[in-house]
Design a protein around this nucleic acid. Structure first.
Lengths: 347, 347
DNA sequence: AAGACTTCCGAAACCGTTTTCTGAAACGGG
DNA sequence: CCCGTTTCAGAAAACGGTTTCGGAAGTCTT
């Protein structure tokens, strides 16, 4: 009996009017029970609900959005979808967003301003309730171009900006460095060298300040002759480590500002025949996935990427809910993950 | 003069009626010129356009979607947002989607069926035009749960399924293995061992068939005693390599079915004092980011992740446009990237 | 018993587009 | 000069929900 239309449970979309008709009430009433609005009797509630799920009714959120002008939708624009830190942060925001019933649009700008702007316009047109600008880079981007945000809340993730009234969430580089340096000092290391990233990064500056602070507090002297700055990559770490170890009084610990640098340094130490951690302790930064697979496994300070993503999502959702938008800078604390390259194992 | 409303170029949303009023025409006409519909004079076209961008008019795509019941929106559900292969595939689909004016919703199911289902329902409610189910795992997922797709097109990415009328795109594991094995054979290797992944993976089976095929074609005999199966991880590669090299007649080449396995094997060979590539050639699979940083840099067969993503996006968009949906399985070809672990350098 | 609330429900307007459908004007052919 | 066509423009009806508003009934006060 294919002609019977009763057999198919739904197929073409069933509207609020359909369930109203079946329940013998008005569309308005159906709307009210679907939204748990007051002033509808328990009896009709039951009737309507029964009708609704007999018809397998699912409210059309497009229609709802049109009326309410809220879409329960976020935009996420990243400048490097394939960046090594990107996906963990994305996981954080996706997690809190979907937990609160929001969906997130994914946009990749490839670091191109025009593309970013285009994405943003589409997002605005699609009436997202807020957007997160996520940078896969560490570069501090001062004076970002004024974006055509349609008056919706924005938060910058892993990115600084000078724009007024936007929130930023970044890792607490200073605190992270303190953690690492204190660890080294606590293990008895006294000549602590640092192999830093490029000088123009905000992160490197703050991390360096962090080790200085921690060392001062621990009573070990900081030797400025023991710091090298270079690139974030392995080769840079390799060269710097060789250089440092050829000093008349070589260091007994290497604080590397990235895990990549650390594996480079590890290679140099290996080539030089110096033992890690017996002769020199080695610590990295970032907690990249390969850190655990080094020999010895790398002690490192972890970037709180997922937490940063979660915080960004929470801030944005709160702004959406409450309308506020103070220009706060949130530094989320790093975490020390100790493995074996410093000579101490977990308690 | 704050009371003047003329100063602010837009602020509260300007609708099609506003520009109609300013242009002195009806809303219908404005709609027509915005969509380049025929039967409107060039003169009014100009007038309307002028009014539109004087008012900075941006059409409300929610309203449009409501009427048209097409949202220019895709859903992408991944079971492992942080998976090592996920983001490259995502980049591919984002690329083609946004190039064609589509936005993509990002959903992370954590491999949890209930969560996947929940996401899917939200996507359906949000009236996405199609969805991509992206698996970060290699596991073949036969008989996936029948999902409540609301009659919209779906494509499975990096994932097999038995469901009717859905498209799948996966890498051509067989062809990739042929590439690698032929490379080894062409370099004169005769005793080629393979360190495989778990036996229950479709990928491992096909890859093994690939090397057998290539070897047969190259006239080098395939020794079944020279294959080991294990996990995808380094430790597995390490153990297998040691085992293989302790044979009375050890192999002169190791075909590792993942780059992780290969670096494990590389470690074993190093510990054993056998030289790579002089004594034994080593080839990996996947082209992971760390492959290039090995010593020697790893020759490997690259998974065509971005291309797979692009293809999935193209297929889906085509289905959306044309309504078709044949259940095709697309195997996209892998690519050999030769570095130094096999003794041949690039031409 | 009359008035003041309170509860319950539905008619209708609305959100901002698109799309008929109708009609007027211009045009062209015989 | 009259009668098809064709071009152009607008009124109005959707699309599928939410919300205001008013009316009807019921419940408490005095």
């Amino acid at each position: 009996m294919p002609p019977k239309d009763k057999a198919s449970p739904s197929s073409a979309s069933v509207t609020i009017r359909d369930v109203a008709r079946l329940a013998g009430v008005s569309p308005a009433t159906v709307s009210k029970v679907m939204n748990n609005a007051p002033y509808v009797s328990e009896e009709t509630r039951q009737t309507v609900r029964a009708a609704a799920d007999k018809l397998n009714f699912r409210p059309n959120s497009i229609a709802r959005s049109l009326k309410m002008s809220r879409t329960a939708t976020l935009g996420l624009i990243t400048d490097d979808l394939e960046g090594v830190f990107t996906m963990s942060m994305m996981r954080g925001v996706e997690e809190v967003a979907s937990a609160q019933g929001f969906s997130v649009f994914l946009c990749n700008s490839y670091g191109d301003v025009a593309r970013e702007r285009a994405h943003l316009e589409v997002l605005i047109d699609k009436k997202v309730d807020g957007v997160i600008l996520l940078s896969g880079y560490r570069v501090r981007q001062r004076g970002a171009p004024a974006l055509p945000l349609g008056g919706i809340p924005v938060v910058y993730l892993y990115q600084y900006t000078d724009e007024a009234a936007v929130r930023c969430v970044v890792p607490d580089d200073f605190g992270g460095a303190v953690l690492g340096a204190a660890h080294l000092a606590g293990l008895g290391r006294r000549r602590i060298a640092v192999i830093n990233g490029p000088a123009h990064y905000e992160a490197t500056r703050r991390r360096l300040e962090g080790v200085q602070d921690a060392l001062a507090r621990a009573g070990v002297s900081f030797d400025a002759a023991l710091v090298r700055a270079g690139k974030w990559y392995e080769s840079s770490g390799y060269a710097a480590a060789r250089d440092l170890m050829s000093l008349p009084a070589p260091p007994d610990a290497l604080f590397c500002m990235s895990d990549s640098i650390a594996v480079g340094a590890l290679g140099a130490l290996h080539d030089l025949g110096v033992r890690v951690p017996q002769d020199v302790a080695l610590i990295g930064f970032d907690n990249r996935s390969f850190a655990v697979h080094q020999r010895p496994p790398l002690t490192t300070v972890a970037l709180p990427l997922v937490q940063m993503g979660r915080l960004a999502g929470d801030l944005l959702l709160r702004d959406i809910r409450e309308g506020g938008s103070a220009a706060e800078l949130h530094r989320v604390p790093c975490e020390l993950v100790v493995r074996q390259s410093c000579g101490a194992s977990r308690a």
